[in-house]
Simulated scan of single mutants.
Amino acid sequence: MDHGIRELAATGRGVLVTGASRGIGRAIAAAFAEQGDRVAVHCTVRHADAERTLADLPGDGHVLVTGDLGDPAEVEALAARAEEALGAVDVLVNNAAVMVAHPLPTTSYDAWQDAWRHTAAVNLFGPAHLSYCVARHMIDGRREGRIVNIGSRGAFRGEPDHPAYGATKAALHALGQSLAVSLAPHGIAVASVAPGFVATERVAGRLDGEEGERIRAQSPFGRVGTPREVAAAVLHLASPAARWSSGAVLDVNGASYLRT
């Protein structure tokens, strides 16, 4: 590695977390802030929730940034705003995602196309473009960095009612591995987390009744994951000690799905 590259610090870093209004993104933002990092809380539409996330973060130097990840121009502006507001973005967490139901047997062709376009724009092209913009700032600043993608167990297990979600998460894993090779000479490590079912506001209703029992039974632990458990995995992969994990896809699913 070029010794002119500034090494990544353990704390006090600038961290951009997309989709940090609530759920997993909020937990990730809080985990970084709790260890002394400065966090850029990103949202697209849930501004009130994002303001709450920001207000609850411990420490100083945190900011709220907005931008439509499906718009390449807004992505570029978002990366620039976060870089300026934090002084530098040392860690990017690509967490934001959409999950639009479109089971093939019951979905019209027009709705099918719309679901794929929207899902790919936010779940794949958005992280790809944002990773490009943030990594270019890291390279130009001659500093190490970390990119952590939030993928999904569904990339391996399949998502019959949300096929575009499963496909884009699989592509996000592959993107992370390609970037891990490309960016290693610049001191930038890239890895992904593949969570299983996680108890968040978006899916709280599904954990009631018989469906909830079936979901919890997927894991031999008899429960679902928590946002804090996903955040802990992200925190590790973003740490200076995890450089050698670059290219990894870390399963965080409570042994609910084992792949070879």
Rank of each mutant, 00 (worst) to 15 (best):
H3F: 01
G4T: 10
A10V: 12
G12E: 01
G12V: 07
G14S: 07
V17P: 05
G19Q: 12
G19Y: 05
A20H: 05
G23Q: 05
G25E: 11
G25S: 10
R26Q: 13
I28N: 12
A30S: 13
A30D: 13
A30M: 14
A31I: 10
F32Q: 04
G36V: 06
G36Y: 07
A40Y: 09
V41G: 06
C43G: 00
C43M: 06
V45I: 06
R46I: 01
A48Q: 14
A48H: 07
D56W: 03
D56Q: 14
G61Y: 11
V65A: 02
V65C: 07
D68Y: 02
L69Y: 02
D71S: 11
L78H: 12
A79M: 03
A79L: 03
A80W: 02
A82G: 07
E83P: 02
G87C: 04
D90N: 12
V91Q: 03
L92I: 06
A96W: 02
V98W: 09
A101R: 13
T107K: 02
A111C: 00
A111S: 06
Q113D: 12
A115W: 08
W116K: 00
A120Y: 07
A121N: 05
N123L: 08
N123D: 14
F125C: 04
F125E: 03
G126N: 06
G126P: 00
A128F: 15
S131T: 15
C133F: 13
C133L: 00
C133K: 11
M138P: 04
R142W: 05
R143P: 01
G145Y: 08
R146E: 02
V148R: 00
N149R: 02
N149T: 02
N149E: 01
I150W: 03
A155W: 09
F156A: 14
G158P: 06
E159G: 00
D161I: 08
A164I: 08
Y165M: 13
G166F: 05
T168I: 10
A170E: 08
A170F: 02
L172H: 09
L175V: 00
L175C: 09
G176T: 07
G176N: 02
S178K: 06
S178R: 10
S182C: 01
H186T: 01
H186P: 01
I188Y: 08
A189G: 15
A189Y: 01
A191C: 12
S192V: 03
A194D: 15
P195F: 11
A199R: 14
T200P: 04
V203M: 15
L207F: 15
L207Y: 15
D208T: 14
D208V: 10
G209H: 09
G209I: 13
E210L: 15
E210H: 15
E210N: 09
E211I: 09
E211H: 14
R216N: 03
R216S: 13
A217W: 12
Q218L: 15
P220S: 12
F221C: 02
F221V: 13
G222I: 10
G225V: 04
G225S: 07
P227C: 04
A231S: 13
A231C: 13
A232I: 01
A233F: 03
A233L: 05
A233W: 04
S239M: 10
P240Y: 02
A241M: 04
A241F: 01
R243S: 07
S245I: 01
L250Y: 04
D251K: 03
N253D: 14
S256I: 08
T260N: 14
